[in-house]
Design a protein around this nucleic acid. Structure first.
Length: 105
DNA sequence: AGACTGACGGTCT
DNA sequence: GAGACCGCCAGTC
């Protein structure tokens, strides 16, 4: 089983209305400190038809990561999150203290 | 084989 | 609070 497959499984466990950070996903996959790998893995999966809720994964700042390669995907991500009841502040950031996914408790 | 790049994160200044 | 640096792994040239 590839590390990527594991990443997809963990991401799929994120409940609706919650978000997780790249570092958090990496940690849950036993890939501590390899947040980049998570982002890299999700890059190959940003297909709308994918069963993986990639839109619930954001960076440690609570912001949606932008990239020239994504073009309008970031906008779509925000829309999907808002559709789940997640709010963005003036800086387009999500309150991690409020919406961050917790595996324990 | 060596260098570069990328949806990141933590630390230091 | 913002910007600069370094470390991580995988894929590509």
């Amino acid at each position: 089983m590839n590390s990527y497959t594991r990443i997809y499984e963990v991401v799929s466990q994120i409940p609706s209305g919650k978000v997780a950070t790249y570092g958090q996903i990496a940690e849950l996959c036993g890939l501590v400190g390899q947040a980049r790998l998570v982002g890299y893995a999700l890059f190959q999966v940003d297909v709308p038809t994918s069963p993986v809720p990639w839109h619930r994964v954001i960076n440690a700042k609570g912001e949606i990561s932008h990239s020239p390669l994504r073009r309008g995907a970031d906008y779509l991500q925000r829309s999907l999150l808002e559709a789940e009841g997640i709010e963005f502040d003036q800086s387009s950031k999500v309150s991690l203290a409020k919406y961050k996914w917790r595996v324990e408790h």
